[in-house]
């Protein structure tokens, strides 16, 4: 369904349609053998077509919907209005939840990257044998259920959970601590743990790639290990640090599971509003506008962050 549409452009530019002398199949075959790029795209087309059908078209549909108004169950006024965007940007509740989401994700990203860096450094520079074992050990939790990893923290931090009941059993406290759960801090703690494995690998890869002779050169030229770290190692590890930050920051801004399970009403994030608008709130256009607005702002923030980090490190080295 998607393929002809997608390939149309390629075929036209390949001059396929103008060659009227031979049979269609021969024309296709000769054109393909002459143009490896076309063959490559033909091979890639099912994958691209599927991503187009399941992501690009739905996102475009979401964009169109965001300019409509809900008038009833699955009924929309399609005349077109920016009202949903005005609300998404101006209503206090959305602003509070969005800023809170940014704050929670920012802290989570910072914590995961700072905690993962020494470990990645250790595996890259100090583990001589069995590197694979370490890599598998730290990436294994990533493949296990996200829901369960988050749920574990509900078990740990809950009112009658492991920490509270443990401390009471030990006689350290008499009443359960209520500040452990249902607040933004609990969300940050849980997210930091749940996304920890994502940060290690990109940082490890960029550290592993560093040419060891560069480090030796820095030492020979008189840098102490401390200065060498900040002048050579850290700037060269920056691509991995940035990749890890982006891979954690963007998805966590829109996380739904963690705020729902351990956030409580004080820890609600933007995804809870999106879910509400598409669910019980029955205001799909508003949900669409909030989704697209928050994703656009996040994308711009990330672009600025990556750009300035690159510039900053470029000036240093």
């Amino acid at each position: 369904m998607i393929r002809p549409q997608f390939l149309g452009g390629c075929f036209d530019s390949a001059g396929l349609m103008n060659n009227a002398t031979s049979k269609p199949l021969d024309r296709l075959r000769s054109s393909l053998s002459r143009r490896p790029a076309l063959r490559g795209y033909l091979l890639l087309s099912p994958t691209l077509g599927l991503v187009g059908a399941l992501m690009c078209i739905p996102i475009m549909a979401m964009a169109v919907l965001s300019f409509w108004q809900q008038t009833g169950h699955m009924d929309f006024d399609m005349s077109g209005t920016v009202q949903n965007y005005v609300e998404a940007l101006t209503r206090d509740m959305y602003r509070v939840l969005f800023l809170r989401s940014l704050g929670i994700s920012g802290l989570t990203t910072l914590a995961t990257v700072v905690m993962a860096f020494p470990l990645a450094y250790f595996i890259a520079f100090y583990v001589k044998r069995h590197k694979m074992v370490w890599i598998i050990l730290v990436t294994l939790p990533f493949w296990t259920s996200y829901l369960l990893r988050v749920f574990a923290w509900k078990v740990i931090l809950g009112y009658g959970g492991a920490v509270n009941s443990g401390l009471i059993a030990l006689g350290a406290i008499s009443e359960p601590l209520t500040f452990l759960m249902y607040n933004p801090t609990a969300v940050v703690i849980t997210l930091t743990h749940a996304w920890a494995t994502v940060a290690i690998l990109p940082i490890y890869v960029s550290l592993e790639k560093i040419d060891r002779s560069m480090l030796e050169a820095a030492t020979d030229l008189g840098d102490s290990p401390f200065i060498r770290f900040f002048r050579v190692t850290l700037p060269l590890a920056l691509p991995g640090i940035l990749a890890a930050s982006v891979l954690i920051f963007i998805p966590t801004v829109g996380d739904y599971v963690t705020p729902s399970l351990v956030g409580g009403s004080d820890g609600y994030m933007i995804a809870n509003v999106i879910q509400f608008q598409f669910g019980r709130g029955s205001n799909w256009p508003s949900g669409a506008a909030i989704s697209l607005t928050s994703m656009t702002i996040v994308a711009v923030l990330v672009a600025v962050f990556v750009w300035s980090a690159r510039r900053l490190s470029g000036r240093h080295s």
Binding site: V51, C56, I250, G254, D255, Y256, W284, A288, S291
Partner: peptide, 26 residues
């Protein structure tokens, strides 16, 4: 092109899910 195929790795799943929900139900 490869970046586009990899994009679902970073876009929050709730947004992908809602966008697909719109298309499926419409």
């Amino acid at each position: 092109v490869v970046a586009m195929i990899m994009l679902p790795l970073v876009v929050p799943e709730i947004i992908l899910a809602m966008a697909m929900l719109i298309v499926i139900l419409r």
